[in-house]
């Protein structure tokens, strides 16, 4: 995939806590594996950062089979954070990523505050990890997961525990399945988060009218993601960007540079591309090129000049 990423006439770099990203585009956790799966299609060095699959202290087998259903303009899925566990991540997956110059952010999940802190401590000692994205928003895990993301006190406790366990950049990922997301964003900032990413999937379901069963089998419900959630995500990112001072990372249905720019205009410092990576593994490169072209056409020197300039 050819790219104009080396063009230096516009500055796409942004800071996320202690991490400097060369551009604001990253994969959303769980849609990019451990990076290696995409190596036939893109050069990982061209990305702002790589965010890897949700990682837990122990390996997890995840949800039952029949995990994905397509819905109009999106996806309903329940993976249940299947992952190899933090030790095997460090031993088997991280060495591959260390070959690149791209910052690596590890998405972590846990069933207790202590588990989040423990995973963070282990990752902090590993060479080649730049940041921690705290998954307090997984819609598909019974214990832990979203439980920590729908109670502001629990959110605060987890973020504080992770903050105390590391000097790395800490970025909680919020769930949209709450009444007032700004309360959760504020709790994260008070607990010491360096940045906040949002949103994870909306809880949804789909029923097969012939079998009268869930199309997700025994999983029953799943997370709704993809282009169909973009307007919902955009509005939530806009709300959060207005109430916190830390950088906000926008996630939700991004498939193009125009989508990404909408989030940036709404106040996002950077974006994560999720579901659409599964359709076009090279889409993030197209988005980076498209953002650069937009800035060049409008003769804007950098992203700082347009962030949050949406006129309400």
């Amino acid at each position: 995939m050819s790219s104009i990423v080396d063009d230096t006439s516009v500055n796409l770099s942004v800071n996320l806590g202690k991490i400097q990203l060369k551009n604001p585009v990253m994969p959303a956790s769980g849609t990019f594996g451990y990076g290696e799966e995409f190596a036939d299609f893109i050069n990982l060095n061209d990305l702002g950062a790589v965010i890897v699959k949700g990682t837990t202290l122990r390996p997890r087998l995840g949800s039952f089979q029949h995990r994905l259903v397509e819905i109009p303009g999106g996806s309903l899925c329940s993976i249940g954070i299947q992952n190899v566990g933090v030790d095997r991540f460090i031993a088997d997956k991280l060495p591959y990523l260390r070959q690149f110059r791209v910052p690596v952010i590890v998405n972590i999940a846990g069933e207790s505050v202590e588990e989040f802190a423990r995973v963070t401590e282990i990752l902090s000692k590993a060479e080649g990890v730049s940041g921690i994205e705290i998954n307090i928003s997984c819609p598909n895990v019974k214990k832990g997961g979203m439980h920590f993301g729908v109670d502001p006190d629990a959110t605060f406790a987890v973020v504080r525990a992770v903050r105390n366990a590391t000097d790395l950049t800490v970025m909680p990922k919020l769930t949209p399945n709450v009444t007032d997301i700004t309360a959760f964003a504020r709790a994260c900032e008070e607990a010491g988060a360096d940045a906040i990413s949002l949103i994870n999937g909306f809880v949804g379901m789909s029923i097969d009218v012939n079998s009268k069963r869930s199309r997700l089998g025994k999983n029953l419900t799943g997370g709704v993601t993809g282009p169909c959630i973009k307007p919902l995500a955009l509005r939530l990112v806009w709300q959060v960007a207005q109430v916190v001072n830390v950088p906000v990372v926008g996630i939700g249905g991004i498939t193009s540079a125009e989508d990404a720019l909408e989030f940036i205009l709404a106040g996002a410092c950077a974006v994560e591309v999720g579901t659409y990576n599964l359709v076009d593994p090279w889409v993030m490169i197209e988005i980076i090129d498209g953002i650069r072209s937009y800035l060049m056409e409008k003769k804007i020197s950098g992203l700082n000049a347009i962030r949050g300039t949406f006129e309400a």
Binding site: G62, R67, L68, V69, S75, Q82
Partner: peptide, 16 residues
């Protein structure tokens, strides 16, 4: 199986 990516990233198409 229903597949998301086909390249082993999304872990949707699992089989026991």
């Amino acid at each position: 199986r229903n597949m998301g990516c086909g390249v082993g990233a999304c872990l949707s198409c699992v089989c026991r």
